[in-house]
Design a protein around this nucleic acid. Structure first.
Length: 315
DNA sequence: TGCAGTGTTGCTTC
DNA sequence: CGAAGCAACACTGC
């Protein structure tokens, strides 16, 4: 699954390859993947078309194609798990790869997961930027840059930015009282401004911290020796520091190793990342914990699986 | 063979 | 308001 390190790997590679290129054309065999968002004079009900509105979808894709044509890529960046191509004339193209999507450029390795191509961008250098996505959950949206920036501001801070200090981490995690006129922080609860909720779910909440998903939340909590079910309000200062430190180290290491590829993620050349070598708990239920030898457990939190060591990780 | 499991987001329901 | 459930989709493994 593309989480922060995988998305970062993708954009860094694309920056060296498609910056300053212009979109010439676009093809898809799954029109539901593409959308025009705010700023195109469309009513919301026209934009949020239902699957049965085939005629509407065709019309929508034709307009998407028309608007994208001849736009030049000025900047490629990442916000959380979103890839953003900033284009000429005030446009931005947003790609969210969801569970099994990944971008491929020019020539890529032969691999089954690279064969589910549902979208192709044709560039002015004669090369193709393609989106392979087995489950077809990925979304590709054309925005007016101004509107997109507003939309992205609802995401939590970037964990690898310089200003994401330990103090800031503690503040966003624990939740502080909203100042007058300020929007209330998400999942804000209790008189003292104390947020409640299981730490794993908090880490995966994109409005609290951007970019963390199921794999890295499991790995971070194992490294920090904190149980995924522990309520965030009960975390000690020491535990908070351990989580912060583990988060920094694991995300940086995962980027260095070009992400994980236990499932479908591949880089733009179609190659696997190597974070798998470091994986301690994710999808290792039943195996022995490398720290204490006890069997790694798997349990459900909010409908998804958490993997953890029931002995090393304290509740 | 059939069906639960897989993870992200957004919408619906309570 | 929040949290829980489910749908979007296709393939794997038991």
């Amino acid at each position: 699954m593309p989480e922060l390190p995988e998305v970062e790997t993708t954009i860094r590679d694309l920056q060296t390859k498609v910056l300053s290129r212009t979109f010439i054309d676009v093809w898809t065999d799954f029109q539901k993947m593409t959308r025009l968002r705010q700023g195109f004079g469309l009513r919301l009900d026209e934009v949020g078309l239902r699957p049965d509105e085939v005629g509407g979808q065709v019309k929508n894709f034709e307009q998407f194609k028309k608007e994208l044509k001849n736009k030049k890529i000025r900047k490629i960046w990442r916000r959380g798990k979103n890839i953003i191509f900033e284009l000429s004339q005030g446009y931005s193209l947003l790609i969210h790869q969801k569970l099994t999507g990944h971008l491929l450029y020019d020539k890529w390795e032969e691999d089954k997961v690279n064969s589910y191509i549902h979208l192709k961008f044709f560039l002015d250098n004669g090369k193709v930027l393609a989106l392979s996505d087995l489950r077809k959950f990925a979304k590709v949206e054309l925005w007016k840059t101004k509107d997109l920036k507003k939309e992205l501001s609802s995401l939590g801070p970037e964990p690898l930015e310089k200003d994401f200090t330990f103090e800031k981490f503690r503040e966003v995690l624990k939740g502080k009282k909203a100042a007058k006129g300020e929007p209330r922080s998400p999942r804000f609860a209790g008189e003292a401004g104390q947020r409640r909720g299981k730490i794993k779910q908090i880490l995966m909440n994109q409005e609290i911290i951007a970019g963390i998903g199921n794999i890295y939340s499991d790995e971070v909590l194992w490294k920090a020796k904190v149980h995924p079910f522990k309520d965030v309000s009960r975390l000690t200062e020491k535990e908070l520091k351990e989580i912060y430190q583990a988060l920094q180290e694991i995300l940086r290491k995962a980027i260095e190793l070009r992400g994980e590829s236990i499932s479908d993620y591949r880089d733009p050349a179609g190659r696997k990342g190597r974070f798998d070598e470091m994986r301690k708990v994710y999808r290792r239920g039943g195996e022995k914990c490398s720290r204490c030898g006890i069997k790694i457990k798997r349990a459900k939190i909010g409908g998804r699986s958490a993997h953890f060591c029931p002995v090393c990780q304290k509740i």
